[in-house]
Design a protein around this nucleic acid. Structure first.
Length: 302
DNA sequence: AGCCCGTGTGGA
DNA sequence: TCCACACGG
């Protein structure tokens, strides 16, 4: 197997998880602009989770409720339970366990936080490929899947029709183009990395559907070859969607990706990289060798 | 008045 | 091995 393509790794991230937990409990909050906030006294409390409807009004995490209401006057506010003057998150932890239990039926889960989990799907994928007949994968089984970098827009002056496609049309067109480029899942082709990612996406589609059916909670996911890329992919099409990030699409994605967008590089570490190496984008980093990076930033980080 | 918490890293 | 700090949520 080619270097960097050995594993299939997924990251599943619950969409505005605390909000969903409160919405399940109180149906009046569903499909509305709402937030979860803690500590009522100062400016109405601090916001720790925001529904996507409220985000459309510019409401963000870490905002005061009083400020958020200026942006979104009909904002609904759910409150974090307080025990003895302390915010009590056990409610959300219990909901998290519900989700993890469902996901564990599909793969070994590595819990990364209360609302996200990584999983190595390599062996599950190989199992599924073995048992598959030689037909092309049905796009209908990947209804919420985006393939990053697809459709590849060939510069065709005769058809400027791409500009009128909405997001869903683009998604399905890209998926279709991707599936056509794959070998049929037969015999010798089972170690094709792109085919493996696609099978990973199929498993994650099933997992996410099971999570929603069992718990009522929706999530997004990224499928790629390692944890950093899976995390990055997950953020590309939220909420309630999943994204495959093939290695071939990484170069273009990185070319304009600010370093701070990569997990663990959002703070001082990322700033020091940009400062030390005089770079802005992830693409610029490929100019440096691994020993150079290790020298600057330490064994693990480099 | 940004808190609180889990996790990971690297230096002492 | 422990501790301080950084990061994300």
């Amino acid at each position: 197997m080619e270097y960097g393509k050995e594993r299939v790794v997924a990251l599943v991230d619950m969409d505005c998880f605390y909000v969903q937990v409160e919405q399940r409990l109180n149906p009046a909050l569903r499909n509305t602009s709402c937030v979860v906030a803690q500590y009522k006294t100062w400016k109405g409390g601090g916001i720790i989770a925001v529904s996507y409807e409220a985000r459309a009004h510019g409401v963000t995490r870490n905002m005061w409720v009083a400020d958020a209401k200026k942006l979104c006057p009909d904002l609904q506010v759910a409150r974090v339970r307080e025990s003895h003057g302390k915010a009590d998150l056990t409610h959300y932890r219990d909901a998290s366990v519900e989700v993890i239990e469902v996901m564990s039926r599909f793969a070994v889960i590595e819990r990364a936080s209360i609302d996200e989990a990584y999983m190595d799907l390599t062996s599950a994928v190989q199992q599924r490929l073995k048992n598959m007949s030689e037909e092309q994968i049905n796009p209908g089984l990947l209804k919420t899947t985006y393939i990053q970098g697809y459709p590849q827009t060939e510069l065709d002056p005769s058809s400027s029709e791409n500009s009128v496609l909405d997001k869903e049309e683009l998604r399905s067109k890209g998926l279709q183009q991707w599936l056509e480029s794959l070998p049929t899942p037969s015999s010798a082709e089972q170690n094709c990395a792109e085919l493996q990612l696609t099978m990973g996406a199929l498993i994650v589609e099933e997992m996410r559907a099971a999570v929603e059916k069992q718990t009522g909670f929706r999530c997004s996911a990224g499928i790629s070859h390692n944890k950093v890329l899976a995390k990055l992919a997950c953020g590309l099409n939220k909420p309630n969607r999943q994204t495959v990030l093939p290695l071939e699409s990484v170069t273009e994605l990185f070319s304009s990706l600010p370093i701070g967008k990569i997990r663990n590089l959002g703070g001082k570490m990322g700033a020091s990289i940009m400062e030390t190496l005089k770079v802005e984008n992830m693409g610029d980093l490929t100019r440096f060798s691994q020993p150079e990076l290790v020298q600057h930033f330490g064994e693990k980080t480099g």
